[in-house]
Design a protein around this nucleic acid. Structure first.
Lengths: 169, 169
DNA sequence: CTGCAACCTGAAGTCGGCTTCAAGTCAAGC
DNA sequence: GCTTGACTTGAAGCCGACTTCAGGTTGCAG
């Protein structure tokens, strides 16, 4: 095995990886427990990371930014090669799905923004028929797509009937 | 007191409020503990809410959507009148600041998206100089503005020196 | 060869935003 | 007036994503 030898100097200690990735060492160990990254060990049991680990971490962080949990990130990550940079095709699928997630998120923010603007115009937030009110009320209970910015989806509960008569204040 | 009487039928039980707001009753009690909403009590100690409470809840949910914590939402909420719909001017300040938060978030997503697109084009995620890599690496450690989509800011830690030499793989 | 920073482990703690539980009380329709 | 479902409380539990801690080991500069 002459190719692929991570020649000693290409190996990072956890401290170095921490510095370069911006993640705390504790976080890196946590990621390892979750199977997001892997390390070889020295004879003395210390972790050593290949530089490719930085790529995996980059991937995970980006995944978080598009709203994925670490578990979800792992699923996506597992579909990419562990020791190489992904090929264009491999990367494509992932990137595509992220694109649409991002687009959804942007669209959602645009909607919220539009509603805010409307509210400025009308000086409302009265209950009668404010877009923002309706946004937070019904949209919060709507399906996926409103979820990502909220820390947790609160509307997994009832939301049973359209018990909203006319918004009689 | 003829004006302002919440004539009995304008008062909602916690169950009704739950239904109309999409929040669980437990969440509503939790919001009350945080001071986000308030209730009067019946002689038998049950909560009764005015319809205006729906407005407050709407506000809080919207605040969460722009990335505020409940504590932050409370601060904003406390600057608006408790029993009336806010005036245009009152609403303006809040809306303005939310607008810019939203704009930041959108911009951030656009950046991420652009980087993803770049990655599709170049088939990269190689360590050499991938925008996405740099995004997740440095941008994650960057100041406020990258924070909101991440559940927690991981870069409150060190990130001490520009220890990033050339990206020698 | 020594000293000390960096590393190791498992267990426990933290934080925000809730939910669940147990045990008891209220309100309203028959 | 009784039943039954909606309500009350405080305390504890849960989730994700980590951090902190305590007590022990390693690796490398001098």
């Amino acid at each position: 095995m002459i190719a692929n030898r991570p020649s000693r100097h290409d190996l990072l200690t956890i401290g170095q990886l921490s510095e370069r990735s911006g993640l705390a060492t504790s976080a890196l160990r946590y990621y390892e427990r979750l199977g997001l990254i892997h390390a070889t060990r020295t004879t003395g049991n210390q972790r050593r990371y290949t530089r490719g680990t930085l790529r995996r971490i980059a991937f995970v962080r980006a995944a978080q930014r598009v709203g994925l949990s670490l578990d979800e990130a792992k699923v996506a990550l597992d579909r990419l090669p562990e020791h190489r940079a992904p090929s264009g095709t491999e990367w494509d699928g992932v990137a595509q799905s992220w694109q649409s997630r991002i687009d959804e998120q942007i669209a959602e923010l645009e909607r919220l923004k539009a509603k805010l603007t409307g509210c400025i115009g009308c000086g409302c937030l009265s209950l009668t028929r404010c877009g923002l009110y309706n946004a937070a009320d019904r949209a919060a209970a709507a399906g996926p797509g409103a979820r990502y910015l909220l820390t947790r989806d609160p509307a997994t509960g009832p939301e049973p009937a359209p018990t909203d008569g006319p918004d009689s204040v």
